[in-house]
């Protein structure tokens, strides 16, 4: 049916791996601490990015999250060892919220420029070019769609933010067809994105 893999969960068994990491860290195994960081680093980074943390702040919060979580695992373990991901997530969110509160308290009307620059730097020209290029790729993939119905589907989903059920009902589509159109759009966008990135010097800023 043309969708990604349907394997269950992240990796072989998140609960088992998490429980193993928790047990080994509690037993004082330093290598397990490194493995924990390695396993959750990218996901935590993405989470902080989604929550709106800019790179520098995300770095700090991520580091502090791992410090707190590892410290806790060393000394107290975790009641539900499979709950490692929720524990990491909760710690990161709380730290970010606390950090935002601190920033909000420091904020006054006198320091408009400097602070604004610190928390929301202007996108560079390069970033604007990238954004335009992304729009162009979308325009192109829409243009390549075989039917107007598929075009409508994508526009209604990504721009109108309508849900799948109402789009399918309106356009007389099967759920599987909907999935397929979305899947192909993503695949095509991926090709266009990779082609564009190959033509560029490395431009994307790290998260």
């Amino acid at each position: 049916m043309g969708v990604d893999s349907t394997e269950a969960g992240p990796g072989p068994d998140e609960a088992a791996i998490a429980a193993d990491l928790v047990r080994r860290i509690a037993a004082g195994e330093t290598a397990a601490e490194g493995q924990l960081v390695e396993r959750y680093r990218r996901g935590l980074r993405y989470l902080l990015h989604r929550l709106g943390a800019l790179p520098d702040l995300a770095d700090d919060v991520q580091q502090e999250t791992f410090r707190i979580v590892i410290e806790r695992l060393r000394h107290e373990g975790l009641a539900d060892p499979a709950g490692l991901a929720p524990f990491l997530r909760g710690t990161a969110r709380n730290l970010l919220i606390a950090e935002r509160r601190k920033t909000a308290r420091r904020r006054t009307w006198g320091d408009t420029g400097e602070l604004a620059q610190a928390v929301a730097p202007a996108p560079s020209q390069l970033q604007s070019v990238l954004l335009d290029e992304e729009a162009e790729m979308v325009r192109r993939l829409i243009g390549e769609l075989p039917t107007d119905r598929d075009r409508q589907l994508l526009l209604r989903f990504y721009v109108g933010e309508e849900d799948k059920d109402s789009i399918c009902a309106d356009l007389g589509l099967e759920s599987l067809h909907f999935n397929r159109v979305l899947f192909r759009a993503r695949q095509r966008f991926k090709e266009l994105l990779e082609r564009f990135q190959k033509q560029q010097v490395p431009v994307k800023e790290g998260r």
Partner: peptide, 28 residues
């Protein structure tokens, strides 16, 4: 979020969907 924290496949998916959705918005 609890799932993707340790799922490279979903993180790859998110890395793709984010610019795709941004592209749609920018185009609109």
């Amino acid at each position: 979020e609890n799932h993707y924290l340790s799922c490279p496949e979903c993180l790859d998916r998110l890395d793709l969907v984010e610019p795709l959705q941004r592209g749609f918005k920018r185009m609109a």
